[in-house]
Design a protein around this nucleic acid. Sequence first.
DNA 1: GTGAAAGCGCTAACAT
DNA 2: ATGTTAGCGCTTTCAC
Lengths: 335, 335
Amino acid sequence: MRRPQPTLKDIAAELNLSHPTVSRALSGHPSISAETKARVREAADRLGYVVNSGARMLKRGHGNVVGLLLPDITNEFYAAVAKKLSDDCSERHQQLILSVSADDADRELAQVRALLESRPTAIVVALTRKPHPETIALLNTVHCVQFMQTHPVLSGPRVTVEASGGARLAIEHLLSLGHRQIGFVGPTLDYAIGQARMEGVTAAMEAAGLAVDPTCVRLGPADGEFAFDAVLDLLAMEPRPTALYFSSAPISVAGMRALMRENIAIPADMSVVVAGVSPWYEAWPGGLTSITLPVRDLADAASRYVAEVAKGDVAAGETMLSFELVRRGSTAVNP
Amino acid sequence: MRRPQPTLKDIAAELNLSHPTVSRALSGHPSISAETKARVREAADRLGYVVNSGARMLKRGHGNVVGLLLPDITNEFYAAVAKKLSDDCSERHQQLILSVSADDADRELAQVRALLESRPTAIVVALTRKPHPETIALLNTVHCVQFMQTHPVLSGPRVTVEASGGARLAIEHLLSLGHRQIGFVGPTLDYAIGQARMEGVTAAMEAAGLAVDPTCVRLGPADGEFAFDAVLDLLAMEPRPTALYFSSAPISVAGMRALMRENIAIPADMSVVVAGVSPWYEAWPGGLTSITLPVRDLADAASRYVAEVAKGDVAAGETMLSFELVRRGSTAVNP
DNA sequence: GTGAAAGCGCTAACAT
DNA sequence: ATGTTAGCGCTTTCAC
């Protein structure tokens, strides 16, 4: 093992052919006799021949690779996107290179640079909140699909969600159930998406003729751990909110942990709207009412743009989808 | 945009240098004057130069890539592994190619073949239950880290878990609480890991002088959906089991859904041990007692082997870790 | 300190 | 139907 992989020349030598003939035989070129093709195929399999993608790329002028740059593969939402992209790539016989930015602009730049080394046919990127200008400049040199977050100076197709819509949906739902004092726990405003959600909350409240009570709003970093203390804090208020909206998946986990530790009955003592796509929302006793992204549709849209680029078309356009409210058992009428 | 990326020659022409000089300047070769290095660096940044990995690979004889082949990136366990590997790769300035086998041997073979095209420094692979012999033959031509599942004919380091241990842990725990009729829902036996779990169950029961009741055992495919019906089935038994052990994460979700739909009180009417690493286990009302893998340690071990290979060492050895039982509120004494 | 030349493995154009 | 040749972009001798 670990001896250098055989090359076309090795196969050619084995069969007393020239390496271009072997190349043509393996790629099914019409002007090669069926018998030669068979002999070549056999020898290739026997020697364990696998084409060298570097050499092929050099010749072709571009790689056969799709880049995917995400903030966090551990997030079930992004994992679902990676799965879809991986499936579609392997159908097109392409490779998927996965990079994780961890929501860090420096690392994002390094990853983009590294991705470009493979001359990808396309890059799908969920940008960080404040990308370096150089990151954008580099991305503008390739076919790039912007996912979730967009950047004004970056060209190419975009797949986004109507960002303030999820928050509005959640708040409207809770208002319609008669809740007036609603706690909101979400990501800090320097995330583009955090800002939009806050706007959604404000819009929904104002539409009902109500003002947002700033003491009911708790914001924190993306990992969501702050939500545990934030919820304990909200529970200690006098009077305490009758409903909560957790606006990201990690925040939802940490928030629910706090509610459970305090033995809050749901929805009797507290109505809760969570966010994200976990299969556990349906398994939860009574179910958890959730704001979910149309994961599948978003992933499909991104993948479709990638496929267009791979076919050689110029992909362009913007796909904007909407959040959905899935009503389950964690929200009830305010008594 | 989308014009061909600049090459070393382009930079060389721009500065009236030869392209080897530019190459040396960019890679910090000592015999290049500091001034030239600065000029080259500036021009490279200005033109947006990014090295062509294909050409580099051709010259070097091998790629700068790590392959990762998993059954399902959506599984939180595997996602955590991917995250760790991605982090470590980017520290070593390597790329991570993600492939998903979907537990399908044909697709696995195709993915391995595709991965080898990039001449990876190493491949981390969680094999399917019955890999094709050709898959193993191909993997034996590269440095390969076997993850979770192992294959007798495949050489190289292995990272596994003491496979029957999780099941034994779960059953022993339930037995110690006085349960005698224990339902077991797990993956079919043609998964190596399914078989080991069944053995663990049997061993634990026999150690207590009990026999496994085959009517309490339900096995099915990895996606776990069968567990919903399986649990409804178990609930209909006369007498009904007093405790359940779900031996994979997807099975746990589907199983819990069934229990919730039937309004089974946990742990009053039924003790439950789930499997996997979801953050939701701790948030669940009362908490869910779970059998968890030492995800972090497993990922670290795999990544360490990859790093050794990347450094040029011959990685070898076997790391075997143990399941852990995390006692939470879903298991109680049998009344 | 820098240039010239060769070659990695592959494919496409041209020759036989 | 098959062989010859050239060149993709890069690194690495070797020469100056």
